[in-house]
Design a protein around this nucleic acid. Structure first.
Length: 495
RNA sequence: GAGCCCAUAGCUCAGUUGGCAGAGCAUCUGACUUUUAAUCAGAGGGUCGUUGGUUCGAUCCCAACUGGGCUCACCA
């Protein structure tokens, strides 16, 4: 008995003692159910009470006791397993006085039990197992939250996700849907001949994105390593190696703030296709996400936070300048005027408005006035070159890159571009990033000599894309916070 | 990192203009053999997040701290 236990827990501990002295193990592991609750329901579907009585279906099921209604000489248990709920009925006449009394003395809501017996329908039509045999499989010491209001304290829901999952069916459904989404994306790409790969999470150079990395240390090698901020540079090495279509679904780590859109570790899918451009990536994305929504909802439309999101292709395509002009109310031609950009950026409070390049000013203005207002899905294109050090330069306009961001409900969901495979241009871009880093930009890219060496071997022309899985799942589960779609979101140490 | 808000029984929540801490569910005892948040009768259960301060007296007022939420900044 633990001193910190409350009265409810002490009460249950006494029951454990009673079980043990009666020769019963409170935590046995020698009984597996032959049926799931949903399987039992399916077997009895359409049968009326007389048919069930005439040709009994005998099932044995196990699950957590979510409800317990005692009536003296009979009792109902509500059992919950991975497939759903099913009611069990225990009758003293059928089970024998001693066994019945002992079981009902020891069992509590929250325990896991096994029940074996024929199915029947109660007067109110509820499918029920009439227990001929039963066993306690797991004794719970802690009580579950209240049956009607459940667990709503947000901190407890995140810290003790196991309790959240036990009592909040909607939470279980979110994570089932998350698994379905990841599985859909995986098979969508696999059937298009993409190879799934795994590349390093611990990298000597944290490349592929602009973000502050986590640092760790390898003792045997006496070497600092970075948790990856993106898999991009490794996946493109694989294009060099001859895997012309690759993808990876895995965690990235970024040492930045935490809020409803950001968790330090988050899941990305990145995919790369040789002989494709960012234009084909738009088509692929439209097809992938609209068919995903159709798979989930039966149509490429769904509700997010009270508003309809429509994934029916084709999606709107806007340049950064067009988006800034439309949502900021500027004449588009003025957005190519450096003085106007500088003045506007300054007025909007953009930092470095006096020194930033015209391209970066335009993006900053777009992000300030337009991005949050775009309902989408919208592909935003024509990003300036200095914000995209790994993207292919546009053939006609060397100041922009062949890149898009996919914006849905004001959030960046995907980022894609035609890949820069010119090793000379790439070295120049890395040099520029190094100069930014020397000026104090902690998020600028590092030089990656091995990546340049790979490019020097020849990377096929290609396009690649990354989609933030957590944000996609938020959209498709109508979740307002990223913590609602990550099983164990990052929190401070418990106080 | 900044601002605002929150922390009371296992859970969901009241409450005290500063004077013995409340409800429902859960638990325990009793009644009850087809219930559905079962019902009925009774009982027990609290370091009011932590530490200080003000006060005759603090769960309540003040401060700091811890944890959480939202907004902003950074970012995807």
């Amino acid at each position: 008995m633990n001193e910190s236990w409350n009265d409810l827990m002490k009460e249950r501990f006494l029951k454990i003692g009673a079980l043990r002295s009666g020769g019963q193990n409170p935590w046995p592991n020698d009984q597996a159910p032959g049926w799931t609750n949903a399987g039992a329901r399916a077997a009895a579907k359409g049968r009326d009470p007389e048919e069930l009585a005439a040709r009994p279906i005998r099932v044995d099921v196990a699950g957590r006791v979510m409800g317990l209604r005692r009536f003296g000489k009979a009792a109902f248990l509500v059992l919950s397993d991975r497939s759903g709920r099913l009611q069990a009925y225990l009758k003293k006449d059928h089970l024998g006085e001693e066994a019945y009394d002992r079981f009902l003395k020891s069992v509590d809501v929250g325990d896991i039990v096994w029940v074996d017996g024929p199915l029947f329908l109660t007067r109110t039509g509820e499918l029920t197992v009439e227990a001929a045999r039963f066993r306690l499989l797991t004794k719970a010491i802690r009580p579950l939250p209240e049956k009607w209001h459940g667990l709503s304290d947000i901190e407890t829901r995140y810290r003790q996700r196991y309790v959240d999952l036990i009592v909040n069916e909607g939470v279980r459904e979110i994570f089932r849907r998350r698994a379905r989404i990841v599985s859909f994306l995986r098979s969508f790409l696999t059937t298009r001949d993409f190879l799934e790969v795994e590349t390093p999470m611990m990298q000597t150079v944290a490349g592929g994105a602009t973000a502050r990395p986590f640092v760790t240390h390898h003792n045997a090698l006496d070497m600092d390593l970075y948790l990856r901020v993106a898999p991009e540079l490794y996946l493109k090495r694989l294009l060099v190696g001859g895997f012309e279509r690759v993808f990876e679904i895995n965690r990235n780590f970024r040492n930045e703030g935490i809020d409803t859109q950001h968790n330090p570790e988050f899941t990305m899918i990145e995919f790369y296709q040789a002989y494709a451009t960012y234009r084909e990536m738009m088509d692929l994305t439209e097809e992938m996400l609209s068919s995903l929504a159709t798979e989930l909802f039966g149509a490429p439309k769904f509700i997010y936070q009270g508003e309809t999101v429509d994934f029916t292709p084709p999606w709107e395509r806007l340049t950064v300048a067009q988006a800034a002009a439309r949502y900021g109310g500027f004449p588009e031609e003025r957005l190519s005027d450096e003085a106007f950009l500088r003045e506007t950026a300054g007025r909007l409070g953009v930092k470095d408005a006096a020194t930033a390049s015209p391209g970066n000013l335009l993006v900053a203005i777009y992000e300030e006035v337009a991005e949050k207002k775009i309902v989408g899905p919208t592909f935003v294109t024509e990003y300036p070159i200095d914000s995209s050090p790994l993207s292919r330069r546009n053939d006609e306009r060397p100041e922009i890159v062949d890149r898009f961001e996919l914006i849905i409900r004001g959030r960046e969901i995907a980022n894609a571009f035609s890949e820069l495979n010119d090793p000379v241009d790439q070295r120049g871009r890395f040099d520029e990033q190094l100069r930014k880093r020397e000026r104090g930009d902690e998020e600028a890219h590092f030089m990656d000599e091995d990546y340049l060496r790979a490019l020097e071997h020849g990377m096929p022309p290609a396009a690649g894309e990354g989609i933030g899985i957590d944000r996609l799942v938020m959209l498709l589960t109508d979740s307002p916070s990223i913590r609602d779609v990550i099983l164990f979101p990052q929190l401070r140490k418990e106080g």
